[in-house]
Design a protein around this nucleic acid. Sequence first.
RNA 1: GUCCGAAUAGUGUAGAGGCCUAUCAUGGAGCCCUGUCGAGGCUCCGACCCGGGUUCGAAUCCCGGUUCGGGCGCCA
Length: 376
Amino acid sequence: MIAIRGVVRRRPVGTENPNITTGDIEVYVHDFEMLNLSLTPPFDIQHGGSVNLETRLKYRYLDLRNRELQQNMIFRSRITNLIRSFLIDREFVEIETPILTRSTPEGARDFLVPSRVNPGKCYALPQSPQLFKQILMSGGLDRVFEIGPIFRAEEHDTRRHLNEATSIDIEASFCDHFDVMVILEDMVAYVYEQVIEKASASLATLGVELQVPKTPFMRVTYDEAIEIVNSKGGEMLAWGDDLGTSAEHIIGEHVFKETGESHYFIIDWPTEIKPFYAMPYEDNPVLSKGFDMMHRTMELSSGAQRIHVPELLIERIESQGLDPEGFEFYLKAFKYGMPPHAGWGVGCERLLMTMLGVDNIRDVVLFPRDRKRLSP
RNA sequence: GUCCGAAUAGUGUAGAGGCCUAUCAUGGAGCCCUGUCGAGGCUCCGACCCGGGUUCGAAUCCCGGUUCGGGCGCCA
């Protein structure tokens, strides 16, 4: 590594190099200083090319010198800040929920950390801030958001899963699911709009062209979704089945053909296949007020109006085969006048992937944590 | 977890039972040339994932393992 001092000037006639972007200019060096030594890099950084992901991750700091990854990370910072300002504008309060928590019965996929101060006991790392942000509704902090890490000890090896990811979560009192869906679609549209306006240069570097998604996003009911999938032949779904990846793709393509838009919601899910805290419709409890926000290529978010009635909540916990006793700290907060509330969580990395057209989640995270990778 | 596929110099690759003392590019060491930067020339360095098996003979075929990549399940 060297520091140079010199004058930028036009190259003398005959020495221009049309093959490189700086081919018309040069720095005429007056003096330089050697700042540090460097080993030969283990792979060709400048010209990128195809290097194994494995090798790139092993030398992440060198990989980061590659312009594309670096731009992705700068872009990521811009996006999270735009989201912050959007939510703060709408009177959301930024919060941080704990990373060291107690495991709940639903936590079969918790990461456990042994506690040195309580020998034999373990902390669980949160799979989502869900329970905490709901409790805050009882505390009168009516609108909260958090952008923070979530952990899932799952053995999935896909391009869109990590064991440590960043979740963008909100929770709002006196809202139903439709209210928070509007916040979500407005937020996505805002982020696109602002990025196009303020970061066009870095988008150009990445060769990314964005269009602001049109709001409101299409609302596809679960019933319609099933029908769309079944009408395409192929796999046939029965009512009550969850929608698999291939079903999502069929629905995504259908929506795209119909509206020209990539984003849409799936609403009115069967209560049975949504988490216990999703509120069933009062007039038809078979359906819930849970929703997913989809991009043509993958699921970006899921949310719901939550159950705020403690008796109903306990009933739902039990009917999912879970033990309410394990949720004591959570359930207690519902006994002191819990307001109706709703919220959602967006996968930060997935949002970035869909914006940047990146097809491996590892390319929007500095130090991705998958099943086996612990360092760097 | 499961189903596919892959594994060859530091990096990216060629290779279909004997042509392999293993190809090419890049890289490294050195020399030559030189207004350089992704310029050119020459020399050298450097690899078949591990363990079994088949065969006269295996980088190549078979079995097991390991690791990686992709699909699916599940999800954000």
